[in-house]
Amino acid sequence: MNVAKHDTFPVTLPIKKIIRETPHVKTFVFAYDLKSRPGQFINIWIPRVDEKPMSIAYDSGKGEFWLTIFAVGDMTKKLHEMKVGDRVGIRGPFGKAFQYEPGDHVITVGGGYGAAPLYNLAMEATSQKCTVDFIVGARSSEHLLYTDRVKKIRNTKLHIATDDGSVGVKGYNTPILEKLIADMKKTAAGKKKLKKTIVFAVGPEVMMKRVSDICFKEKVACQVSVERYMKCGFGVCGNCCLDDTGITVCTEGPAMDHKKARKSVDFGVAHRDAVGRKHAY
């Protein structure tokens, strides 16, 4: 049952630290016990500007969390102008988190800025005895995020693809996933028991659909992070409903089994805007 927390008022928190990641991306650090899990999201509010859902780049579980934000619209540009000590409203965490078992083998596939929430997952999973293959894809080297941090995570192997080949392999990140699955199956052929592997994808929906298609064909478990226009974040406004299932992404997702996402005719195909009109990806 989707029981919302019965208080969805914001808390306004001072920014503790700001880290510049790339010319257009900053990480904002807050000293607050968010009690979130990887895959969940929060609403970030700047009074008199806007409120938007954002993924969580890291939650220490000990009173600190990070948001890594690309300055792309009015609100995110305004946020980039803010300084340490300025207050930002936070609501949440909302939605469902990624699911895995301790000791699983985790393959993350991040497209563009999807790397940040997957870092959060890799940090948590490796603390739960998981091993991680961390695949990231970006347009070029200057758009890559979090690679230096990922390199420092134990039991984690980083794989990079860029469209222009400036770092890692040239092209999409999905061939790396296909190769990892093929290698895994080859290694497993001689063994009786294959370590349970789960693929987690965060990025543009067309990329996640490609990841899901691969996993579906290869019969590998997969979860994706579905993004839809959201107003409330807790299953009431109805803006983020998927066709034909009618489920709200904000409460039944964003993190969901790819088979659940594939039940929707919209997955990788179309999304709705602020007034509910449908647009193709």
Binding site: A4, H6, D7, T8, F9, P10, N43, W45, D50, E51, K52, R91, K231, C232, F234, V236, C237, A274, V275
Partner: peptide
């Protein structure tokens, strides 16, 4: 088409929305 208001548009606690 009618646009509606910017966010936040909805808050609630145990007593009311």
């Amino acid at each position: 088409e009618h646009k509606g208001h910017p966010n936040p548009v909805m808050i609630a606690n145990e007593h009311y929305m």
